[in-house]
């Protein structure tokens, strides 16, 4: 069990930046009247961010990952969250075993 001073500093800085992002929005004035267009942009934030995080794996890694992601999309339409994760993991293992 070792800890390096630079690594510790990096972790603390990452943690501080992350906590800041978690509280800053909360302290913004919440009385903004949004236009329909701004509201649409606001509503798009969660799916846009979630897609942006996984797109490299789902779309730019290989055909197995892309196919497994499509299988997850189909599973997500009818299975609960854990079911989708299970289907995805089984799919990627099977596809990697094939080729």
């Amino acid at each position: 069990m070792t800890i390096d001073a630079t690594v510790l500093l990096a972790i603390i800085v990452m943690g501080a930046v992350t906590y800041l992002t978690r509280v800053v929005g909360f302290l913004l004035p919440s009385t903004l009247a949004l236009s329909p267009r701004a509201q649409a942009a606001f509503d798009a934030i969660p799916p846009a961010v979630l897609v942006a995080v996984i797109a490299p794996t789902a779309l730019a890694t290989g055909w197995r990952e892309t196919l497994a992601a499509l299988i997850c999309v189909a599973a997500a339409a009818r299975l609960p969250l854990l079911g989708v994760v299970g289907v995805g993991v089984v799919a990627i293992v099977a596809l990697r075993a094939i080729g």
């Binding site: 992601a69 999309v73 994760v85 990697r96």
Partner: peptide, 21 residues
């Protein structure tokens, strides 16, 4: 971790979360 497909669990979890939106 790739042997167990565990690296893909994060992607699958996010796809399930996206579906909720």
């Amino acid at each position: 971790p790739k042997r167990f497909g565990a690296d893909f669990a994060f992607t699958a979890l996010f796809i399930a979360l996206i579906a909720a939106f």
